[in-house]
Design a protein around this nucleic acid. Structure first.
Length: 586
DNA sequence: GCCGTTTTCGGCCCGACTGTTTTCAGTCG
């Protein structure tokens, strides 16, 4: 991609902002939706949408029509979007943040603006403090209290830390709660739903659905749970609670006969459900959590999700794919769903640590734990000399570790093959931390960025491309270096790295550590579209942490990865970089 | 603004819940 063109992220942000501003102005709802859909489509695109638009091809993307394409062209050629600039002149941009506050939406944000002259969260705070909120129609005491509490939690810039929690925290919590609810008499089924069931890497709350005739009994059980701190809200059919861990949980109950309708509804995503209901409306039907209403008014209810989709003439999409990215069109046709990766498909791993660097268990204990999981191989990949902070090995210690690995292999008597691996630093200047002689002695080499992650995009990308080009490097570890809740992705041009990796057969890692989940599912999808293959690693630093691969598998599934796309579903030799493409881009 | 097994124009998802209302608009998922 030539430099200077606006990135997909930049274009998507412009469309999102334009949609937000138009919504504040009270524009027709569907016009707003059109910009939001366009933004999501651009963000998920695997190639440069600016380039596509300049060549007149962007309208081949769903949800991108002539108007949006023209705006992309304008942004690419002039660096600005006139419609956006005009909207900004009409509506203060700070109102977007106001409208995002809980309980406030576009209408109320605009009312705050017209009645009190509020232009952002700072103005709103002043209005709350001086009690002027009561001057706005529809704003009472409760609203003022809720706003005061929220604004107190905002930073000086008025931007709230996004209260999202990692899949690695939320899923075990949700599963624990679901297990408890299943113990309850009268509960026939209880399942995790929502974004967690779709495998999002972070979620803002946990959704649970329950099949039972008596919702009140279920809610009583929920409120007795030791996990629950307090009740937030609730009516007849649903209840929201806050857990001690600070995660919001919403539980909905339906009679068993229409549990499938509720599970489908609660799993979403919102965009998937909107698209599904649009399809139903075209037949004169209506879909809700209560059932499918046919044109004659008959209500169709289903105990399981397959029944709901089948009634609409669709095959049930895997939950991880329900993001309105074309899955409903596929559900209506004959093209089978991809056979998405499962934890059982993994035959081994090549990125775990031991006490040789910053792990807490010996080579032997890690090997035993891996054998107990049924792995055929385990690659010991301790840190290289540059990462002194994490006990990176010297070349001397590497050779001594190899002797220990051989001893463990002998002791394991063929129950598992322990491999000589390394997680080698890619240095700040792009060089590799080991020389070619030593590199030739490893079975599988993972190269990772651990420093200078904040450098400009072209620089970080160039370092990764250099590592991909090395004949000794088999895998790029946690390619973007992100840490959830600490730092974002390095400014890696993942499409370029994936293209290069596809050409050389270098693998890209999905690191399963809950704080990393890197590649994320969007980037992993881009990697697969470029023809690259993946490897899923636990990056375990102790035996129990081998379990963490389940999270990496979920990320891979969201990316649409099949077992064939993930190299460690095969023998360990399949992880060695062939220096040539493993498969063509789809 | 996008889109088509009703349509190139006229449609475009659905219900629960809250707070502030005395009958419902706005927000949320």
């Amino acid at each position: 991609m030539p430099d200077g063109l606006p990135s997909n992220g930049r274009i998507a942000a412009a469309f999102d902002l334009l949609g937000d501003l138009l919504e504040l102005e009270g524009a027709v709802r569907h016009r707003v939706l059109a910009y939001r859909r366009g933004a999501a489509r651009v963000r998920a695109a695997g190639e440069s949408v600016a380039r596509m638009a300049l060549e007149g091809r962007a309208t081949s993307l769903p949800d991108i029509g002539p108007t949006l394409q023209a705006k992309v062209v304008e942004l690419a050629e002039t660096g600005t979007m006139a419609a956006l600039d005009k909207a900004r002149a009409r509506v203060p941009e700070g109102l977007v943040a106001v409208a995002r506050l809980e309980g406030i939406g576009p209408k109320r944000a605009m009312a705050l603006h017209t009645h009190l002259g509020v232009r952002g969260t700072a103005d709103l705070r002043a209005a709350v403090d001086t009690g002027r909120l009561a001057d706005v129609p529809g704003m009472g005491r409760r609203t003022a209290e809720a706003l005061a509490a929220q604004l107190a939690g905002l930073g000086p810039d008025g931007v709230s830390a996004d209260q999202r929690v990692s899949l690695g925290v939320a899923l075990p919590l949700a599963e624990s709660l679901v297990r408890d609810l299943r113990e309850e008499p009268g509960v026939l089924r209880a399942e995790v739903a929502g974004s967690l069931r779709r495998g999002r890497e972070t979620v803002h709350d946990v959704d649970v659905v329950v099949a039972a005739e008596d919702p009140a009994a279920v809610f009583a059980a929920l409120e007795r749970s030791l996990l629950v701190e307090r009740v937030l809200s609730g009516g007849e059919a649903r209840r929201a609670v806050m857990t001690h861990r600070g995660v919001r949980v919403e539980v909905a109950v339906a009679p068993p006969a229409r549990f499938g309708n509720l599970l489908q509804h609660a799993t979403g995503s919102a965009a998937h459900n909107v698209r599904l209901r649009e399809m139903a409306v075209r037949r004169g039907w209506s879909v809700s959590e209560h059932g499918i209403t046919r044109e004659d008014g008959a209500l169709d209810v289903h105990a399981d999700e397959d029944g709901v989709y089948a009634a609409l003439g669709l095959r049930t999409p895997p939950p991880e794919l329900r993001e309105d990215r074309g899955e409903l069109a596929q559900a209506a046709g004959d093209v089978p769903w991809p056979d998405l990766l499962r934890v059982e498909d993994l035959r081994g791993e090549v990125h775990v640590h031991t006490t040789w660097s910053d792990g807490t268990a010996s080579v032997a204990r890690m090997a035993e734990a891996a054998a107990a999981r049924g792995y055929a191989y385990l690659g010991i990949a301790d840190h290289s000399q540059n990462l002194a902070m994490a006990g990176g090995l010297s070349a001397d210690r590497v050779r001594r570790q190899w002797e220990e690995i051989e001893a463990v292999n002998a002791a394991m008597e063929g129950r598992i093959r322990v491999l000589r691996c390394t997680e080698m630093d890619i240095l700040a200047d792009g060089r590799l931390d080991w020389d070619d002689d030593l590199l030739a002695g490893f079975d599988v080499v993972t190269a990772s960025l651990h420093s200078a992650l904040g450098r400009p995009g072209p620089e970080v990308t160039a370092r990764l491309l250099e590592a991909v080009a090395s004949p000794h490097v088999d895998i790029i570890g946690h390619p973007t270096g992100r840490m959830l809740e600490r730092r974002g992705h390095a400014a890696v041009d993942i499409a370029r790295v994936a293209e290069a990796a596809a050409a050389t057969g270098t693998l890209l890692e999905i690191n399963s550590q809950p704080r990393r989940l890197d590649l994320d599912s969007d980037m992993a999808r881009i990697a697969l579209e470029a023809g690259a293959c993946l490897v899923v690693s636990s990056d375990a630093h102790n035996p129990d942490a081998l379990e963490l691969v389940r999270f990496g598998v979920i990320v891979a599934r969201r990316a649409g990865a099949r077992a064939a796309d993930v190299a460690n579903t095969g023998p360990w030799e399949a992880l060695v970089c062939p220096g040539a493409p493993r498969r063509a881009a789809p």
